[in-house]
Each structure stands twice: as structure tokens, then as C-alpha cells.
Design a binder for these strands. Sequence first.
RNA 1: GGCGCGGUGGCAGAGUGGUUAUGCAGCGGACUGCAACUCCGUAAACGCCGGUUCGAUUCCGACCCGCGCCUCCA
Length: 461
Amino acid sequence: MTLTLHNTLTGHKAPFVPLDPTCITLYVCGPTVYNYVHIGNARPVVAFDVLFRLLQRLYPKVIYARNITDIDDKIMKAASDAGEPISAITDRFSAAFAEDMQALHALTPTIVPHATDHVDDMIAMIETLISKGHAYEAEGHVLFAVESMPDYGKLSKRSLDDMLAGARVEVAPYKRYAGDFVLWKPSSEDQPGWDSPWGRGRPGWHIECSAMIGRHLGPVIDIHGGGQDLIFPHHENEIAQGCCAHGTEYVRYWLHNGYINIDGEKMSKSLGNFRLVRELLKRYPGEVLRFALLTAQYRSPLNFSEELLEQAASTLDSLYYALLGRDAAIVPEQGYVLPDDHPLIRALCDDLNTPEAISVLHRIAGALNRAAPEDKPRLKAELLAAGQMMGLLNAEPSSWFQRDDAGEGALSADAIDALIMARRDAKKAKDFARADAIRAELDAAGITLEDTREGTRWSRK
RNA sequence: GGCGCGGUGGCAGAGUGGUUAUGCAGCGGACUGCAACUCCGUAAACGCCGGUUCGAUUCCGACCCGCGCCUCCA
């Protein structure tokens, strides 16, 4: 099965041809850890987690790196506001990020490099850039000279003139050219800093990714992903650094996910209209959030709303119902593996067409619901395997419906079981009025009952 | 101003030069003591105007509307 990916560099979809088919390299920009992450930050994590799973299915080895940016002026401000060292802030929020992403069923990347562990690599890369004439020192800063790179702007498809025409920032006086960007900047005594050939200072925004990619994945990698807002300047500048330092290509396929919108507007920290993953997790299982993120293809904008989450929840319920079975529990066939040309793999191979993949899940679930008993084990195994490719259907079906997320004042499982026994006795005695009263009582408490041949099942609404 | 993306049924969201996904919600039916789940059936869409074509939601052009980026941002 050929994987096809939309490459921002070329602007169209093309078959994925790896540098080395025995080992795929994937890098995704991770968070700057000074706050809890919002659902918009989670989108690339989930989208590229699906890509990671798919690549692992298609190739023998995949090295996936997702960084933690733990030095940055925003972190410094947060630390200063809280009266704590930056490490207290970055430790807390990188741990929170890991927890949140685990709750979304994102696999842990092969490597999670931290910027502050790679300052030496960054300094070495900056020295290389200076020695090759692509960077210069000025007033304690080191700047990348964009004019030294003929095809600068090829990712964002902008010429230098266009960029400067629309510039809305003041140009620092020490820049030779207005478009030059910072590789290294000086730190004052009270600011975090590292010794360098240019004095005590700290790295600029873009150099960490280039340095960590060089260190862990090599000078040229297969795939680099991130949000669309990183195309310029972040990824454009990464290309400049990587290509000029190594004298090679830097990234072969650039993938960018679309934004999450709230009421038609981009969700962002600066607009203040964000929804924290941590808050959403108090109200919805992580799998519901994950499913909601996968309902749109990753490059499309995704409008985020309560309705979207409710739809995701009820759709997952129906898939889990299929796994649960109507009567006898279904034991999935052991050792089932999705074939290479399975519709789900075909859908994901088409630039991660997750909506199409979800429709495949529905087709399998429908077949499972209709199937004769002897066919059910294979179909259940197929549905589970298909779900796993997308990081979905991770829960045991019965626990999915009986999950204890109802909060304070909710009925305990024991209390529910006692009422179900009472109702069973009433039904045996043909006292349907009493049976219905118990159903109504449980319904008011948010519990739905279902009578099956195997007995009564309950689930929380 | 420059560059780019998009407008699909009540909602979400794929896709296609003709037979027009999928899900949620709706409607009818089967099943059920009643329900729920499930199954069967059903209705409903391609921003506007031209062009190409036997045929356009799909290709081309103009227009309208919305959104994004242009050194904080997933």
C-alpha cells in the first residue's frame, strides 16, 4: 500500500518515498511548557500519532521525536511571575503535558528531547553557520543572514521583499537585514543563560529543533510535522538553519495540520478562546476528545463545540455497542492482523483520511452487528485492529459504559446492581409497574438499563 | 498591500465528469411486557453567475462570502 502525503513544500500530495525504507525518521514540534496545553495543541499530537502508528505498520522501524521546549521568554516570564526557577515551571508543565497526551491515547514518541539538554549542540550548529558565512555576531546576538540563502522562503512561498513589505515589527538596529532572525541572544545576570563563544546567553526560538533533529535523527529526515502557524517563521527558519549548516536537504516531507476554530475563529492563546485539554478531560473521556479531533482530515479546519464532543461520544458508544454484542460476549479471534489492502489502511494511506477511516469502522461495526455468531469473533478482531490503528476502542466495552465519571452524588455500582436485582424480581412476579418504576428511578440518576438474553446491563449516560 | 486556504443535506464531514460516502439528529417499520441496543426502510446537499461537455457538485473563468499567515502561536 502506497502512503501518499500532502507536502507543504510542493503544495500537493505525492507518494511517500523514504530515504531509508528500513528506518523512517519523523519529527513533530512539541509544546513550550509554561502552561497547560489546549485542545489546539493536542491536534498535531493526535494527528501525527496516527501517522506514527501507520508508519509502524508499513515499515520495520520508525524513529519518532517530539521535543519539549523548556527555555523560552514566555517560560521566563511565567517563572518570574510565580517566583520560581524556570525548571520548576518546565518540570510541572512537561509532566502535565505527558499526562494529558497519554489520556488522549497518544503513544510516547521514541525520543522526547529537551531543548536545555542540547544547548551544546545548538552552539556547535551556530558556530558552523558562522563559519560558513550564514550567520554573524552583533552586540552579543548571533543572527542568521537570510540573504545568504538564495531560496529562503520556499516553504511559506514568500519572497523576502513580500515579507518585509508586510512586516509589522520594529527592526532591531543590530540586524544587517530586516529579515534576519536570532540564533542566540544575550541573557542578563538574573536571566537563565549558558556560556557561549558570544558570552552568556540563550538560544533563539528555531535553533533547538534543527539541533535536536541533527543530533537524534541526522542531517536529513523524512517527515516533519506541526501546526500551520509554524510554517512561517519557525519551519522556514529551521530549513534555513538545517540546509545551510549541513549543506544538504533538511526535511523531505513537511506536514501541517489545520487549526481548531471556536465560532469560526482560530483557537489560540493570544485570542484567549482556548479550551484546555485538562479541563475537557474532567468532562469527557480522552478517547472522546481524540475521536472528535479525528472527525476532520488533519489539514482541514475543525470547529470545536459541545455538539462535536456529544456526537463523538455517541458515535463511540455505538462502536462499543458493536464490540459488546447484543447477547453473549464475543471473544475476538486471536492473532488477527489487518491486511495491507484493508480499507482502513487505504484510507489512512491517503494523506491520513481519518473521516474515511471512521466510516470504515462503521462498516465493520455494522457487519459485526448483523453477523452470524460464528462470524463475530473475526469481525470483532477486525474492528479492534482497525480501531487500534487510529488509537481508538482502547477500553473494555463493559467498562466503557460503566466508567465512573459521573462525579459526586452518583450511584455506586453496588447500589445499581441492588436495584437491578430488585427489578429482576419484580419482572419475575410480572409486577411491571414496579419494574418500570425502578427503571425510571435509575434513569433519573443517569443510568440506562438494557435487558438482554444474558441479563440486564447498565450504562451511565 | 502580498501570499494562501475554504464555502457539500438540520449538524459534522468525505468524495466524485454520469450510478451522488459515513455518522449524529429526524421520520416509518421489525424486535421488546415496556424500553434501550440492533436491524430494515426513508427523506435531505453540493455559495452565486457564466463557460467547456451529451452530461458539472466535480474542470475553467469571474463574482460574493468566510478564514489564515506576513517574525508570540499547534
